[in-house]
Simulated assay, not measured.
Amino acid sequence: MTILRTVLPQPTPETQHYWDGCAQSELRLQRCRACAQAYFPPRPVCPSCAARDIEIFAASGRATLHSYIINQRPRPDMGKDPHSIAVVLLEEGPKMMTNIIDCPQTPEALILDMPVEVVFIRQNDAITLPFFRPAQG
């Protein structure tokens, strides 16, 4: 599936590790060494305890569908068909906003708590975006 966004994120020094990971088909999260809390989105301070002792690690890429809406309005970068705007609960604990792809965009197919997995789609030389699809087994 080709999904090309017209508006792309701009990496910053605090998020560069995340975008580098996506380019290598690796979902990178941060974890606080003081309280062991994994979190997303990337930031230099732990949102739980405000510690700055942070490590970057490769997440499993597995998640469950936590919530979603089906957007019926056409978008040039998502095609003419409806598309989901979803929140997934990553296996490591954080929640992440995304789109669910490779699946009918209907309430019958988008079942809450269903297992999903990350898939990476290159947008240009600088940005590869993570999307999620129903888990393959």
Rank of each mutant, 00 (worst) to 15 (best):
residue 33 R to P: 10
residue 128 T to S: 13
residue 130 P to R: 06
residue 33 R to Q: 15
residue 90 L to Q: 10
residue 46 C to G: 09
residue 135 A to F: 02
residue 129 L to M: 13
residue 15 T to E: 09
residue 29 L to T: 07
residue 93 G to E: 10
residue 39 Y to V: 01
residue 24 Q to F: 07
residue 96 M to V: 02
residue 71 N to W: 01
residue 39 Y to N: 03
residue 59 A to I: 04
residue 103 C to V: 02
residue 33 R to S: 13
residue 30 Q to C: 09
residue 61 G to L: 03
residue 60 S to L: 03
residue 110 L to Q: 04
residue 63 A to S: 02
residue 77 D to C: 03
residue 83 H to V: 04
residue 51 A to K: 10
residue 16 Q to V: 13
residue 133 R to P: 01
residue 107 P to H: 05
residue 75 R to C: 12
residue 15 T to Y: 09
residue 107 P to I: 10
residue 95 K to F: 04
residue 15 T to M: 06
residue 28 R to K: 14
residue 13 P to D: 05
residue 42 P to R: 02
residue 54 I to D: 03
residue 19 W to M: 01
residue 71 N to Y: 00
residue 67 S to V: 02
residue 47 P to G: 08
residue 61 G to R: 07
residue 37 Q to A: 15
residue 123 Q to V: 03
residue 40 F to A: 09
residue 47 P to F: 08
residue 110 L to H: 08
residue 31 R to P: 06
residue 126 A to P: 05
residue 93 G to Y: 03
residue 83 H to P: 01
residue 79 G to L: 00
residue 34 A to I: 00
residue 35 C to S: 09
residue 44 P to S: 10
residue 70 I to A: 04
residue 18 Y to I: 00
residue 95 K to V: 11
residue 79 G to D: 00
residue 24 Q to V: 09
residue 137 G to K: 05
residue 48 S to L: 15
residue 61 G to F: 02
residue 89 L to D: 14
residue 71 N to E: 06
residue 2 T to Q: 14
residue 46 C to D: 08
residue 30 Q to R: 11
residue 6 T to D: 14
residue 26 E to K: 15
residue 63 A to D: 01
residue 132 F to W: 07
residue 71 N to A: 08
residue 112 L to R: 05
residue 21 G to S: 08
residue 86 A to G: 11
residue 41 P to V: 06
residue 57 F to A: 06
residue 108 E to C: 09
residue 4 L to T: 06
residue 1 M to W: 12
residue 126 A to V: 14
residue 15 T to P: 00
residue 103 C to H: 08
residue 11 P to V: 13
residue 133 R to I: 01
residue 70 I to V: 13
residue 21 G to L: 04
residue 128 T to Y: 08
residue 60 S to C: 03
residue 8 L to Y: 09
residue 36 A to N: 08
residue 71 N to Q: 08
residue 94 P to A: 05
residue 92 E to F: 13
residue 127 I to M: 10
residue 49 C to I: 00
residue 79 G to R: 02
residue 24 Q to S: 12
residue 46 C to R: 07
residue 93 G to H: 04
residue 81 D to V: 10
residue 86 A to T: 07
residue 112 L to W: 00
residue 91 E to H: 14
residue 61 G to Y: 02
residue 44 P to I: 11
residue 29 L to I: 05
residue 15 T to I: 07
residue 30 Q to E: 15
residue 88 V to W: 02
residue 39 Y to K: 04
residue 120 F to Y: 12
residue 105 Q to G: 01
residue 64 T to P: 03
residue 49 C to M: 01
residue 70 I to N: 03
residue 58 A to E: 01
residue 119 V to I: 14
residue 6 T to C: 09
residue 52 R to V: 14
residue 24 Q to I: 09
residue 93 G to V: 04
residue 39 Y to S: 02
residue 2 T to G: 02
residue 127 I to K: 10
residue 80 K to T: 11
residue 33 R to D: 15
residue 98 T to C: 09
residue 35 C to D: 13
